[in-house]
């Protein structure tokens, strides 16, 4: 009984939900730390970000971590769907009059809806960047594209640029000699696109609001699910949860707007 209890019972589903959810909170912190590098400007910013991206895609420890992250999202989503469906079945005939707003918070009752918005966002986000990184067309090009320099009689230098196919992405060598994929430029171009840049930023903002509400309930809820509830620490956990739910999504959401409005155009 004990074995199946830890996999199939209602409580086991809660443990998995909480465990994967709280792990994903840790992931968010790491991901945010990486992304905040995008706020940097100047010469080194591009190299720094691209070297970081190279590290994140090649380091074996990070690879294991990213597999665990993908597995967590998958588990969390499947478990969330199973729980939500079972919970609907637990009340086949609803009330004519039901006033849940008198006894519970909106976010706590809409974790499934918020999660679905987040899932849709994750798919879009992966197509935008991870898919491009992994399956996009990449080409090693000489950065300067200079084919020849003619010095004319009056002393003016004429530079002949090589015609290049600009649809494929660039692989280049950084100052420190690492051969990197130029994810930085893809990212900045996405959010600086004159037509789509602002729309992307708004889509990202909506997703971050959904994550904020998801975590406003989810952070503390995860601790409760794992049995961590003690009058001494509850206030602390709640405050950290609310702070986390506001600060982390807010910092994420600032990045696209900063790139669109503030960062030098490339």
């Amino acid at each position: 009984m004990a074995k199946s209890a830890l996999l199939k019972s209602s409580l086991a589903k809660k443990y998995w939900m909480a465990f994967t959810g709280l792990f994903l909170c840790l992931f968010l912190v790491g991901h945010l730390a990486g992304n905040l590098q995008l706020l940097a400007s100047g010469e080194g910013a591009r190299d720094q970000f691209n070297e970081y991206a190279l590290f994140m895609t090649s380091n074996p420890a990070v690879r294991i971590l990213s597999i665990v992250t993908f597995a967590s999202i998958l588990f969390h989503v499947i478990d969330g769907i199973i729980i939500t469906i079972n919970n609907r079945k637990a009340r086949p005939k609803g009330y004519v009059s039901f006033k849940p707003s008198t006894n519970s918070k909106w976010s706590s009752r809409n974790m499934g809806v918020l999660g679905t918005i987040i899932l849709a966002f994750i798919v879009i986000h992966l197509i935008n960047f991870w898919g491009e990184m992994k399956f996009g067309e990449w080409e090693t090009r000489d950065e300067s594209n200079i084919e020849a320099v003619h010095v004319m009689e009056n002393g003016v230098a004429v530079v002949e640029m090589e015609e290049q196919d600009q649809t494929s992405n660039l692989i280049y060598t950084t100052e420190s000699g690492a051969e990197v994929k130029d994810l930085y430029t893809i990212t900045i171009k996405t959010f600086q696109d004159p037509e789509w840049g602002l729309i992307w930023a708004i889509i990202y903002l909506i997703a971050m609001i959904a994550i904020g509400f998801h975590l406003y309930h989810g952070f503390g809820s995860g601790f409760q699910s794992l049995g961590i509830n003690h009058p001494k620490y509850n206030t602390f956990v709640r405050r950290v949860g609310v702070g986390f739910a506001i600060i982390v999504p807010l910092l994420f959401a600032i990045i696209p707007f900063y790139i669109y409005f503030v960062l030098d155009k490339i």
């Binding site: 729980i83 919970n87 519970s104 918070k105 706590s108 309930h217 809820s221 409760q224 699910s225």
Partner: peptide, 12 residues
């Protein structure tokens, strides 16, 4: 019965 999602309605 359904699964708890910690809404806290019961306690209230």
């Amino acid at each position: 019965f359904g699964n708890c999602t910690n809404t806290g309605a019961c306690e209230i």
